[in-house]
């Protein structure tokens, strides 16, 4: 759902620009906790993979399509603060190099795809991790659930922004219904891709999955206790 130039008026674009800049600034500080010599290259690869995956539009019927947004995926793999930065780099490269998403809409796109999907995806994931049994096998389904919800929520936030600063008069009830409807279907694709990718990484290197670390921690603590004694 890359927003092009012209959909939203200047004040709204400016406001989302301020929100995006603040979120990136906070994330630059907070991501330090998530990034070290091992996880920094992983974060670079996750951002790169999200860029590549966003090129794959999958059909969702009736002449429309959707592609991965990747907020939930990145948050579970490398942590939420780093994920905001991953998506921001993707969106800036897309806007500047590929003319995908408007230049004046960069703030809007970072807010929708970089902040909302990360926040919803990670929030749902953490909630599920708390209530589900503490096993590695719950990581991929919990990530998929976060992904599923993140897309329609981002669509709703866009609708809200359009209600405030849309440059064309439209029936907001119809806009809300169609945005929500199509993006619920796209969310199923988002969930499938997110679940598959997270499951693959958990199978290969669970220690590289940020969201899986608390579930691995028990084993690590046991090892360290043995070394200490």
């Amino acid at each position: 759902m890359h927003v092009p130039d012209g959909f939203l008026d200047a004040p709204t674009s400016l406001a989302t620009g301020v929100v995006a800049a603040a979120a990136v600034a906070v994330s630059l500080r907070a991501a330090r906790r998530e990034l070290d010599d091992r996880t920094a290259p992983m974060a670079g690869l996750v951002a790169t993979f999200v860029f590549a995956a966003q090129m794959i539009n999958f059909p969702v019927g009736a002449g429309t399509s959707g592609h991965l947004m990747g907020g939930a995926l990145a948050a579970v793999l490398v942590g939420p603060w780093t994920a905001v930065l991953c998506l921001s780099v993707v969106l800036v490269v897309q806007a500047l190099l590929m003319a995908d998403g408007g230049i004046t809409a960069i703030g809007t796109n970072i807010s929708l795809i970089g902040i909302v999907t990360v926040a919803v995806g990670w929030g749902v994931f953490v909630l599920l991790r708390k209530v589900l049994p503490a096993r590695l096998s719950i990581v991929a389904p919990a990530a998929a659930a976060g992904a599923l919800l993140s897309v329609p929520v981002a669509a709703l936030v866009f609708t809200g922004l359009f209600a405030i600063g849309g440059n064309a008069p439209v029936d907001l009830t119809a806009l809300t219904a169609t945005m929500l409807g199509w993006h619920t279907v796209i969310g199923i694709g988002e969930a499938a891709v997110t679940g598959l990718v997270v499951a693959s990484v958990v199978a290969a290197r669970p220690d590289l999955v940020h969201g899986a670390r608390p579930l691995l921690a028990e084993r690590v603590l046991e090892t360290r206790a043995a070394v200490a004694s």
Binding site: N57, V60, G63, T64, A155, A168, L175, H183
Partner: peptide, 24 residues
């Protein structure tokens, strides 16, 4: 990949605000 418009473009066409999009 599918060359159909994505969800947002499609909705913009349907609800009639696609013309407000400007070239980047």
């Amino acid at each position: 990949a599918s060359s159909h418009p994505d969800g947002l473009e499609y909705v913009a066409e349907q609800t009639g605000f696609i013309d407000s999009a400007e070239d980047s």
